[in-house]
Design a protein around this nucleic acid. Structure first.
Lengths: 197, 197, 197, 197
DNA sequence: CATGAATGAGTCTTCATTCAT
DNA sequence: AATGAATGAAGACTCATTCAT
């Protein structure tokens, strides 16, 4: 009996749709990116889309979860490292690399507009929470190691590191001359200044 | 011949629509905020909206221009001051006050997603440019006065101050516990650290 | 006690609106001609329109009735003439002159599209009937005088004269090179051929 | 991979919409015929309409082009005939048959009012030009064969034959007692009189 | 499973008409 | 009487989602 489903091909297509969604959302915004256009971009029929995602919002959710998982994976890989301040710096660097993908800033802006949907707001919050939780751990350790200022609580410092990364993303989307590569050193310097004891 | 227009009432209503637009855009996003809902919120009929703004996009533009004008007015009022670093700090404080209006962060996110419309993208760029141009002048003066570091060019420093303010706005929208009032001191401290020689 | 109404001015304005309506309907079609535009064209406020005509359709009706009255007046002025065939020819010539006004063909086309409104269909029928009734009398007399063929009934011949005039109007609207002045002689010749015994 | 399109059914439906459009435009005028009503008449959903025609104007255009193509086909089928005057008469008869469809006069009137749309004006002009061009050829041949008068140029005679046909259509729409069948003989006689040397 | 045609709810926008001044 | 701001009903068109093939 032949397998009618090829799980590998299925996953491949799923990723193709996620990729197309990232691109289209970034270029056109959430509402501007029609399921038909995303489907065409992914090389599938307009009805096939709904074999992979029950709704358009579900695709957005999947993209967000994908990002959350990557965050978790990255931090999981740092387990056991001994220089906490360096882990924080590495995370900043890692994020700066991620947003080298020119679609990311556009995507983030696109998503910002759909927070009326509770499911999406929840996913965004979960994504943020994932970053904050992991990062906070290392910041606290860095404080305990005397590498980072202690006049401000670890949760607050964490928010401020994320704040700088958020702003970094925003500038990339706003100023044409502001590039991830060109401003990377300044980014690290700014975070250092923010955290310096 | 009786005058049928009461210019005062007209301006009042125009402002009411702008206010309703700000609220609705912030809560529902640009696409989510229907003209019908904005009209209801402003207490006018659905057709009346179009007596004040020819299109929905024009309302958004008007809100943006309103903000740009306020920026220009604020900087115009600083002319002649002698402590440039203090002007920069005052601007940061002023911005922090503005975003005390809880609608502002939501609005900014909402708008970020509509950059497909060239007219809106242009208005956003103009708004950003207005801030950057004025702020840069004072930052340069602060550099010349030795109040601010000179290892980074004034335009870049300007971008980074705006980056912090952008990120500040973003955090307000993302983290429920992150409030403008509570983080105001930290904001000023961060900008000080960013600019310190 | 001052007269608040100046009947002369009132009639003047009424005619101005009728004229503006003729122009706008001709240029833009019935639906395309908004009451606002007609009012502006007539030099009055958009609300004033409705002091003179209760609805937009009523304006169209008034224009049609104006034409009907002119037709009746013209025929009334021919009473007592002794050469019936010449009266018919004069009517044709008179009509050709009327449609020299370049708005007339456009207006007729515009009106053709609104026959769904029963009131307008009735007015158009009345206008046509007015022409047919008067013209038929003279055609019958011309038959009795042996000036016009008798193998076809007077009512039918009347319809065919009107048919040629209708077609004349249509060509003016369709062919740019077909002008009232240039085709006038041909028009009379064609009617002569149509009626020749 | 299953074919999801049945081209036959697609064409069938397209024709159903064209037919419904013809009926609705004729009865209600261009503006009066809403896409919703046309869709209901064609037995399809209101959104389906736009799978077949991108705009309402495009439907009108399609109907007009359909007529133009029929005209061209008819004349193409006459190639090689030896009695040019008879071809002209046949064309007149053919047209009279076409307008036996009681929707045609209404449709023509309806369309006359939409000449503000340049695309539609162009299609109407193209349709007229198609008729004129083909008809002119045969009229010129008839002149050369001595069957038709030569005191008037072929283009002008062509316009006048079309004028009579236009007027015929108009009368059908205006006078209830004027029928295509009843006036057919008179139509041919009138054209004969118009063209007689 | 894949497809794309079909659907209709929902959007922005227009405009005849009303009415307070 | 004149004005033009206000109104809301209605229309063209879009698009997420369904379903027969």
């Amino acid at each position: 009996m032949a397998r009618t489903v090829d799980p590998e091909k299925h996953e491949q297509r799923r990723l193709a749709i996620i990729d197309a969604g990232l691109t289209c959302f970034a270029e056109l915004g959430y509402e501007g990116a029609t399921t038909a256009r995303i489907s065409r971009h992914a090389g599938i029929g307009s009805g096939t889309f709904f074999h992979y995602f029950p709704t358009k919002a579900a695709l957005l959710l999947a993209i967000l979860e994908y990002g959350t998982r990557e965050t978790n994976d990255w931090f999981a890989a740092q387990t056991g490292r001994s220089d906490p301040a360096q882990v924080v710096r590495d995370w900043v660097r890692h994020t700066a690399d991620d947003v080298g993908d020119p679609r990311v800033p556009g995507f983030v802006r696109a998503v910002g507009a759909v927070m009326s949907e509770p499911a999406i707001a929840a996913a965004l919050a979960a994504d943020d929470e994932a970053q904050r939780r992991s990062l906070r751990i290392w910041i606290r350790r860095a404080q305990q190691a005397g590498q980072v200022r202690t006049d401000v609580s670890a949760p607050t410092l964490t928010s401020w590191v994320l704040l700088v990364l958020d702003g970094f993303l925003g500038r990339l989307a706003t100023e044409a001359t502001f590039t991830a590569a060109g401003q990377r050193r300044m980014l690290l310097d700014t975070v250092d200044r923010l955290l310096a004891p």
